[in-house]
């Protein structure tokens, strides 16, 4: 027997490479294309929002954990950075910095740490922060700088604001204008794909979001279940309405490319902490979120409903987990 003490533990004796850090930083990498696209269309303003959002999130997490909860801060695991970026992605690039701070405080302090930190929060923290800001500061949260105008400018002129494509449509439909009329003023499908539209920092470029989403799928950080069922449901439902009344409803592709749907489908609905644990549950979760999104978009007061849809579905995740258990191997029915 050797002099040194042998370590003894239960099997397994080897460990996979995945860690919370690798997952979180993987998500950060996947969000970079969207961030770059946003910086291209909105200039420094977009970067500023995201950077401040990240800084606030990390600092709040550190301070609260260290001095309020008196536990070892878990800033290093990268989850606060992800929350920060996601929160920034959900804000207009013209938002005042102190509001970003308020949003980050709500996201980290209330939505995440008051429930027990990473892994225990029932709601997606970034979305809670965003919704808090949206209902508290509706004006600031819905004035979107026009993309191409601001590209070359370093400061954010308050005057140059426009509506999001969805906002335009909602307004037009409310006035009773036919879709074809509205679409003349709204950005084209192609604009929406690349990102030359008004909207939150992270949601503008559909292409960049898809690239990021594919990266997440490739890295096996997320599975296909939630994005596909989410996007699929939206396509199907908006498609049905479009086929029935094409003069009143916009086509499904436009729905998919605009607003926060892609951001939500790939980055927010797939947040592991707040999504179901079984494949079937994930499909149900995605479909439910998609359905609620479309209902809000077509019939609700807000032009956009991804945030609310995901938060509502977050709330019923515990029920989904009970209802949709994974299929057991060799399960014996009734006994």
């Amino acid at each position: 027997m050797g002099q040194s003490q042998l370590i003894i533990s239960h099997s397994p004796h080897i460990k996979g490479k995945d860690s919370i850090e690798s997952i979180m930083y993987g998500v950060v990498i996947a969000m970079l294309p969207a961030l770059m696209a946003s910086a291209w269309f909105y200039g420094i303003g977009a970067l500023k929002v995201v950077i401040f959002s990240v800084i606030f999130s990390v600092i709040f997490e550190f301070l609260i954990q260290k001095y309020l909860l008196k536990i070892e801060p878990t800033v290093k695991d990268g989850s606060a950075i992800v929350t920060g970026i996601l929160l920034g992605f959900n804000l207009p690039s013209s938002l005042p910095i102190w509001m970003i701070g308020v949003g980050a405080l709500v996201a980290i302090g209330i939505a995440k740490l008051s429930f027990g930190g990473l892994g225990k929060n029932p709601f997606n923290p970034a979305l809670v922060g965003r919704v808090f800001l949206l209902v508290s500061f509706p004006v600031e949260m819905t004035s979107w700088p026009r993309p191409l105008d601001t590209r070359t400018m370093l400061s954010i002129p308050d005057a140059l604001t426009g509506a999001t494509p969805l906002g335009l449509i909602k307004e037009g439909v409310a006035k009773g204008e036919p879709i074809a009329e509205i679409m003349k003023n709204a950005p084209s499908h192609l604009d929406a794909l690349f990102g030359a539209i008004g909207g939150s920092v992270g949601e503008v470029s559909a292409l960049a979001l898809i690239v990021g989403g594919l990266y997440l799928l490739y890295k096996k950080i997320i599975t296909w279940h939630i994005p596909i069922s989410f996007l699929g449901t939206i396509a199907i439902f908006s498609g049905v309405f479009w086929l029935i009344q094409p003069e009143k409803y916009v086509d499904p592709l436009y729905h998919l490319l605009t607003g926060g749907i892609l951001l939500g489908a790939f980055f927010m609905a797939t947040d592991m902490v707040t999504s179901p644990m079984s494949k079937l549950g994930m499909l149900f979760f995605g479909a439910g979120a998609g359905l609620i999104t479309i209902l809000i978009r077509l019939f609700g007061a807000y032009p956009e409903g991804v945030s609310f849809a995901i938060l509502i579905m977050n709330a019923i995740v515990p029920l989904i987990n009970i209802a949709f258990k994974p299929k057991r191997f060799g399960e014996v029915k009734n006994g």
Partner: peptide
């Protein structure tokens, strides 16, 4: 660390 409910185990 805390379970992050990533569902990898399932």
């Amino acid at each position: 660390k805390n379970c992050i409910r990533c569902a990898r185990c399932t």
